[in-house]
Design a protein around this nucleic acid. Structure first.
Lengths: 224, 224
DNA sequence: CGCACGTTCGTTGCATGCAATGCATGCAGA
DNA sequence: TCTGCATGCATTGCATGCAACGAACGTGCG
């Protein structure tokens, strides 16, 4: 494909990001097959950057080989449960680290205020039934904690897990029944970090993630 | 490059694996720059599968962008420490899961015997000064536990972390001073799993990894 | 009528060509 | 001598061509 005005040399990384967005948005639903040509035409690039994006996203666990070609990963209940157990372990770690940093006085008050604001906005969006926004804000809340933990490795590993979970739970935009519980657990986690109590923060994060697993896990039993 | 006898269509995945081996073996040391053409000629393939392998290995955290092109990742002390904290959290999880499965009677006696044999062989190789073998067996011991945990997600995440650690600690093949401690901790971990005690297994695994971090971390202070 | 085999088409695997970028080197001027 | 710029080179970014694999389909035979 020709571009009238050649956009520049960094097409391949942007291709990866744009394709990832399409997958996370549900444009390519879980289980759907991805063809090089079709994706290349959709994104307006040639097959080469698409193939490279395929490899990177496959390494990130978003795409999986399916005989000929690749498919968007579709986790069954057991696999999703495994993802959640790993996520629980990692979020327990990030919460613990964030609380440690708070105890050591290395967190700015503004950072904690931001986190609290995120929790509040998440709660409001959920209560208002803005499900898509609520999902994004919820992920933002958890991600902010991982950022406060100041551990790039944990943050990157969690990003990959969140991506996998987001793809696999796209269909079942959650029944907002647990709204009160989620908000209470978010506050508990926030309070533990604010108090600089690593053990409490780790325990709260672990419990919250495992509770979420229970909710999403049952919801994921909707067969396609 | 031309191959007299065309080897088959699955060159790209094998390229990724062979390049990974070269990096883990130290053929391309940490920090060294990887050129598409040079690697392609070394492996006897064209630049295309090499580029795809680059993307996949970069997503796995083995390669990192460095201005023009890619370099083998070189973790500084702080980053390595972060990797170890994540590894500790994940190995605590896998040890816990393995112990849970043992308690539930889902581990075959032969599996535990294999694990014990691995611990013993690791100990002997270390005592004999067979450092390269010892490193491989040690990784095998930890990996076997992750396999017994039956959590593919944790296993894959750990594989990536082990790769990063292996690359970054290649130079400093460890002073076998901690031999006795390592062996004792391996036995403690093994015993906790055998006893079906998840909490003890998790604690033993976490402590062991963090102790290893302390050893490798100081060793990694050897500047190149 | 069913099964098996062959053919064809679509898709991917890989190689290579061309263009553009960025770095290094050397020259000129202050 | 140092700084600034221009030019050349090495290397990557991307596109496309060609060949092989595999799947779907149709046909012929049992």
């Amino acid at each position: 494909m020709h571009a009238e005005f050649y956009a520049g040399p960094v097409q391949t990384e942007s291709t990866r990001l744009r394709l990832r967005e399409l997958i996370l948005d549900g444009h390519y639903p879980p289980g759907s097959r991805l063809g090089e040509v079709e994706v290349a035409e959709t994104l307006g690039v040639s097959r080469t950057p698409v193939r490279e994006a395929f490899r990177a996203l496959a390494a990130d666990g978003l795409l999986a080989a399916a005989g000929r070609g690749l498919r968007v990963v579709r986790l069954d209940g057991e696999e999703l449960s495994q993802v959640y157990r790993v996520r629980a372990a990692l979020e327990a770690l990030t919460a613990e680290l964030a609380a440690e940093r708070q105890r050591a006085g290395r967190l700015a008050p503004a950072e904690l205020a931001d986190l609290a604001a995120l929790a509040e906005r998440t709660h409001r969006a959920t209560a208002d039934g803005e499900l898509t926004l609520a999902v994004r804000l919820n992920r933002g809340f958890h991600r902010r904690i991982a950022e406060l933990a100041a551990n790039q490795v944990a943050l990157h590993a969690l990003d990959r897990l969140w991506d996998q979970i987001q793809v696999s739970t796209l269909r079942s935009l959650r029944p907002p029944a647990r709204t009160a519980l989620v908000d209470a657990q978010h506050r508990e986690l926030l309070d533990a970090i604010t108090a600089g109590d690593p053990a409490a923060a780790a325990a709260a994060a672990r419990r919250h993630v495992l509770d979420t697993r229970a909710a999403d896990g049952t919801a994921a039993d909707d067969k396609e």
